[in-house]
Design a binder for these strands. Structure first.
Length: 588
RNA sequence: GCGCCUGUAGCUCAGCUGGAUAGAGCAACGGACUUCUAAUCCGUAGGCCGCAGGUUCGAAUCCUGCCAGGCGUACCA
């Protein structure tokens, strides 16, 4: 019997009891957990029945609890105020769930709710004039995690990266290299390509302060690029190539994957024809300045400062396009390229208004799927000194941060291995998994809408509510299972009725929650729910671990039962961490 | 001005589709390693859940108003 079936069985028994004692079946009751597992394994609040039977919830709970006699499933039913607390026979409670989790393995918790649905997760959207920073890491961690969660719920997921590879800012680093680069390359200087190019972007900003004339040169360069000037295009290709090499390294290291790349150099002219069609369909109009505009529906957007209807410009009078123009085109391109059911944009909260407008326009143009476009908005990452600004150098570089965290993890590993028994590459590998895991967990543990005040001291912690804490719980279990092997394989004859102490119950209850937690998390694109859940599960295991021996339990039957429990816990921890994009280690 | 987000322990945050005494981590203090990995565990201390009303048997949670902070507010991306 699965947990869901178990809950259903319990409700059926209660329904039957109510019908017998009170003369009619009850309205919909919900099953939950008592605050303390010692009180019972499940709880049912009787509030909805108060009106139906004109008795206080406590009275009703008492009547029902008296009627529920112990049987093969229910061990005990006790009324506690308005609640009925139920204890379940251990073999049923533990055995069924542990067997199921061990049997299903990584499939545990997954569902088919998205079967047949195709979802695109667009995330990261870097600029090719500078390296990635902490904000990109939050975006990347969110994007990967949401993609993982969608996959785990049966969706076919396409991960897309919309690369901002053109525009004045790109020309700035190009111009700087042209003037002061002396034909150097990332190879010749031994610098990662994106950093190499980023240095020229910074150089430009410095020089432009002294020499305003540079601004004109950049504009001129942009025009040459748009005109397809072979020399400029070649320079652009070469420098972007350097950047992509650099990005690829960071993607690999941080575990970011993409199925499709869209480049703005290829999409920036999209959307214009759609605007033309929209004009014919009278979706767009021309304003007093000659702009082609979309009038935003008052019901949703309200009115502007001077009490007029709000509008958004989609084409300038000279016919040139805007950010939103190409986004309209790209949105349509994505759908036609990949036959999508859902389109998810992982973009910072400062662009909420933009996406609200974009989706409204798409809907007005008659695209039904516009309702299945979601802006996964997330809060900013603030540094102790304030908002990150790359031009002022107030920034946390992604590569630097990763390297720093990995270094700290490495130091920690060496400290635990004073005799130097570990091989160098083993140390390096562990440090990488722990360091990267710590960053991802740190960025995902708060809900997306929350802005993050980046606290270096807190972010480098490996204790408490952190990735390494959860990884450590997994590694501990692996250690035990390793020692138990090969003598004991989980057998169908494991006697789970021996389990039932407070820590075992707490752990089991945690394990039962994964399917529900995943469903909740994916519904509002919120990986923090998984992070919190996995932390609580790791904690439940650690509490159990500290109080009860597994391999040295009183007798062989108990050893086997506890092995089954922690084997199931390992499955859940690994699954949950993987959903966050965090890897696990067998040893730490 | 308007829109969205945020306000919970010294700090960082869970909880927000209303239900049992408001939780966790960090920091502080005190304990537990001859026992399966102490990146762990246990304990102590710490709260007008921004303020004021309202709805309800019941409000951190829902509604209204106010206060404070962040982000945005077409013709940048």
């Amino acid at each position: 019997m699965s947990f869901e079936q178990l809950e259903k069985t319990i409700l059926e028994k209660i329904n039957a009891a109510v019908n017998e004692v009170l003369g009619q079946p009850p309205q919909q009751l919900e099953i939950g957990f008592p605050p303390d597992p010692q009180m019972g394994h499940f709880a049912v609040g009787c509030f909805p029945l108060a009106k139906q039977f004109r008795k206080s919830p406590a009275q009703i709970a008492g009547i029902i609890a008296d009627r529920l006699k112990p049987d093969a499933v229910i061990q005990e039913a006790v009324a506690a105020g308005p609640y009925i607390n139920l204890k379940i026979e251990s073999q049923v409670l533990f055995g069924d769930l542990c067997n199921r989790i061990i049997h299903e393995g990584t499939a545990y918790g997954t569902s088919a709710m998205g079967r047949g649905k195709r979802a695109m997760v667009e995330y990261l959207a870097p600029n090719t004039n500078k390296p990635l920073h902490l904000g990109h890491l939050r975006n990347g961690a969110l994007g990967m995690s949401v993609a993982n969660m969608l996959e785990a719920t049966g969706h076919r997921v396409i991960k897309a990266n919309l690369v901002n590879d053109r525009g004045v800012h790109i020309c700035k680093s190009m111009l700087a290299w042209q003037r002061w680069g002396n034909a150097t390359t990332p190879e010749s200087e031994g610098i990662k390509g994106d950093h190499f190019v980023g240095n020229f972007y910074v150089r430009y900003s410095r020089e432009a302060e002294k020499n305003p004339q540079l601004e004109n040169e950049v504009q001129q360069m942009l025009q040459q690029w748009e005109a397809g000037d072979p020399k400029i295009v070649e320079l652009w290709k070469m420098m972007n190539g350097w950047v992509y090499d650099g990005f690829a390294e960071t993607y690999r290291r941080f575990g970011l994957e993409f199925d499709v790349f869209y480049y703005e150099s290829e999409t920036y002219k999209l959307g214009k024809d759609i605007i033309q069609q929209g004009i014919e369909k009278k979706v767009f109009s021309t304003d007093a300045y000659g702009n082609t505009v979309f009038i935003l529906p008052e019901k949703v957007f309200g009115r502007d400062k001077s009490d007029g209807l709000k509008k958004v410009t989609v084409l300038r009078p000279d016919g040139t396009s805007l950010y939103i123009t190409q986004d309209i085109g790209t949105a349509i391109l994505k759908i036609t390229d990949h036959n999508l059911d859902y389109s998810i944009y992982v973009v910072g909260s400062e662009q909420e208004y933009h996406f609200k407008c974009l989706f409204a326009i798409l809907e007005a143009l008659g695209y039904e799927w516009a309702r299945n476009c979601y802006h996964l908005s997330y809060g900013m990452v603030y540094l102790p000194e304030g908002k990150m600004k790359s031009r002022e150098g107030k920034i946390v570089d992604a590569d630097d941060l990763i390297t720093e965290m990995v270094k700290l993890a490495e130091a920690e590993i060496r400290q635990r291995d004073p005799q130097g028994r570990l091989a160098e590459d083993e140390i390096k590998n562990r440090a990488e998994v722990i360091g990267v895991g710590a960053i991802k967990f740190y960025l995902l543990r708060v809900r997306p809408a929350q802005s993050i005040n980046f606290d270096p001291a807190e972010s480098i912690s490996f204790d408490g509510f952190t990735g390494p804490y959860c990884q450590y719980a997994y590694a501990r279990i692996s250690g035990i299972l390793e020692k138990a092997k090969p003598a004991r394989q989980q057998s169908a004859g494991t006697d789970y009725s021996l389990l039932g102490n407070a820590e075992e119950l707490q752990l089991l209850q945690q394990l039962s929650r994964l399917p529900g937690e995943l469903k909740n998390a994916v519904q509002d694109f919120n990986p923090s729910k998984i992070a919190v859940y996995i932390f609580n599960t790791a904690k439940a295991f650690n509490q159990f671990y500290n109080k009860h021996p597994v391999l040295k339990a009183e007798n062989e039957q108990l050893v086997n039962a506890r092995l089954g429990l922690i084997r199931a816990a390992a499955v859940v921890l690994k699954k949950g961490l993987n959903l966050l994009g965090v890897e696990v280690l067998e040893n730490m």
